[in-house]
């Protein structure tokens, strides 16, 4: 089975590395699943396909992390939020290139693609959000 036929987090991040935002779509009931899961959580079908999502979305909620885990301490304080895409699916992520005072719930954000940062597990590529 090729990687792309596996509906895993790892495959999702392989797509991120290719600068594509992908979700799983259930062929049986039409449910779109993000993050992808190997089985549709609504109808339990494993008949899934990848679909590409538009990277634009709106901010649902946000915070500014001041006390960070060790790995992120050099970035603190940093803004993170939950972003909703057009079809109602959501992802969390950092919001870059914006001042805290200018962040507003409902603002338009765009998912941008970073790169892989580690040779150890997990070597997933990064994504983040920025104002349109």
């Amino acid at each position: 089975m090729s990687d792309e036929q596996q509906f895993t987090i790892s495959t999702f991040y392989n797509f991120v590395n290719e600068k594509r935002l992908m979700a799983a779509k259930c062929s049986a009931c039409g449910n779109v699943i993000l993050p992808p899961k190997p089985m549709c959580t609504q109808c339990l079908s494993t008949d899934l396909n990848w679909i590409e999502l538009e990277c634009s979305g709106k901010l649902v909620s946000y915070t500014v992390i001041h006390v960070a885990p060790e790995q992120f301490q050099s970035l603190a304080p940093y803004i993170v939020g939950i972003v909703e895409f057009k079809n109602g699916l959501r992802l969390p992520g950092m919001i870059n290139d914006v001042h805290f005072e200018d962040v507003k719930i409902g603002m338009d954000l765009k998912l941008c693609f970073g790169t892989s940062t580690s040779s150890q597990w997990p070597s997933w590529s990064r994504y983040f959000f920025r104002p349109v």
């Binding site: 987090i9 991040y13 993050p35 992390i65 006390v67 960070a68 885990p69 790995q71 992120f72 970035l75 940093y78 993170v80 992802l91 969390p92 992520g93 950092m94 997990p122 997933w124 983040f128």
Partner: peptide
């Protein structure tokens, strides 16, 4: 882990 921790969310 893969989306919250990965993005530095505490």
């Amino acid at each position: 882990m893969p989306f919250e921790q990965w993005n530095g969310i505490t």
